[in-house]
Amino acid sequence: MSRYELRLAGDGGQGLVLAGLILAEAALNEGKNALMTQSYGAQARGGPSRSEVIISDGEIDYPKVLSANLLLALSQDALDRHGRNVAKDALILVDASEVERAMVEGMMRFPFVETSRKIMGSEVGAGMVALGTVVQLTGIVSHRSLFAAIRHRVPSGTEEMNRRAVQAGFKLAQQGGGAALHSQPALASRGQKGGR
């Protein structure tokens, strides 16, 4: 694996920065190189938020995503912003309820936010659920490394809840990503830009 780029995008308050941090640390736990950057607006809650994780066996110079191998979009806005800047064979995971319009063929839909609401009572764990699905689908890190990173990074007292969120994510992956949405040509001319 030379360089694997993941972009986790959605709204502030969905736990995407924590998910990115845990994934990067899990990769480091396995002796790989990993780095993480995050991007956010002025809002502490709500507003666009994203984290980017790059994992490699070699040195990582350029710290930003060049062409994502995996895009997670927990909101329509996130998909609109970042849907284009992905590799040809990228995995694109979107939230089944938050993302209504399709933009990319073959993207997979999962009820990340809904699952988080069931486990945590809010969407704060959506990133963790999605992280479980990402790891299960890609095998980019082992479950063992992932759980070690979770124990290290989540606030004390929430380990079990986060563990359950991730395990729910594993399960979603095993169940498959549901029907892929079909591309809507109208969107192609909207001229979204990668980043701001």
């Binding site: 941090l21 480091l28 190189n33 990993a34 780095l35 993480m36 950057t37 995050q38 710290p63």
Partner: peptide
């Protein structure tokens, strides 16, 4: 900001 907000080993 690239370096200030970069996380790496």
């Amino acid at each position: 900001e690239v370096v200030g907000h970069l996380r790496e080993r």
